[in-house]
């Protein structure tokens, strides 16, 4: 039996080697995405799959988050007579944090796990080997298009989630909390700044990269059989979700420091 120090040492080495492998993989995908040749058809196909097909789930999540946020802020604010801050706090919370984080987490489940399962299945059915024998790099043909598509579509989805989330807050405030519609919207537009929106969109680009890289990485490393593919999907979803939350904190701290 190993002593605890050995176990800790082994786990630490394992963690660092995993981080190293992931970093090398991410570097290769980024290299393939930044240099020709690009597969335009594949990029478009992935943009539809990652972006367009995620619209319903992102829209629904955003409207409910916005609505719940408005209710909670109203409830908390009413204790200090600060109900009038509902529009400003809703728009700030949605644009800087909740819109992008919720979209990221939803896509970690829908997209990252989907990519991992698809690539994992391709790995175990020898389709990736076939790709290589046909002189097509898997980094260029499979991974770079997904990476590029996620980088482009995530900010668009987040911008839409921001609008829908704010409208969710507006719906509850106007029809449930007796706010005046015009005043609510004017307060929202007066309070939100370009920096608030920009902060969310910058995070969206990073989260897009995380979602695509984690899906491709776990799929590429998938072990044989249904269990291996299932495990790849689970690991990609969990890994992407944890990294999104960690990067969100780091970037929020950085944005506060630089005044964004």
């Amino acid at each position: 039996m190993q002593n605890p120090i050995q176990l800790i040492g082994r786990a630490t080495l394992g963690l660092f080697s995993e981080i190293g492998r992931l970093a090398v993989f991410a570097g290769r995908v980024k290299g393939a995405a930044l240099t020709p040749r690009w597969y335009g058809g594949e990029i478009l196909r992935q943009m539809v799959r990652i972006g367009f097909y995620s619209l319903p789930v992102v829209g629904l999540a955003a409207v409910f988050i916005g609505a719940a946020l408005a209710l909670n802020i109203y409830e908390g604010g009413s204790r200090y007579g600060a109900e009038q801050f509902v529009p400003s706090i809703v728009v700030l919370g949605i644009t800087r944090e909740l819109g992008v984080v919720i979209t990221g987490l939803m896509l970690a489940g829908r997209v990252s796990a989907g990519i991992a399962a698809e690539i994992g299945a391709m790995r175990v059915t020898e389709q990736i080997d076939a790709l290589e024998t046909l002189s097509a790099s898997r980094y260029r043909y499979l991974y770079a298009p997904r990476f590029i598509a996620a980088l482009i579509t995530l900010p668009v989805l987040v911008a839409l989630a921001d609008i829908i989330g704010v409208m969710g807050g507006w719906l509850v405030s106007v029809y449930g909390l007796d706010f005046d519609s015009t005043v609510y919207l004017r307060n929202t537009l007066d309070f939100v700044t370009t920096n608030d929106i920009l902060a969310g969109l910058i995070k969206a680009v990073v989260f897009g990269g995380v979602i695509a890289i984690m899906g491709c990485y776990q799929g590429d490393r998938s072990q044989a059989g249904a269990t291996g593919v299932g495990r790849a999907a689970t690991l990609s979803m969990v890994g992407a979700a944890v990294l999104i939350l960690a990067f969100n904190y780091v970037m929020s701290t950085l944005f506060v420091e630089i005044g964004l």
Partner: peptide
Amino acid sequence: GMLFQSGALFD
């Protein structure tokens, strides 16, 4: 050229 056991056609 390579013919894979499973066919390995792209779905």
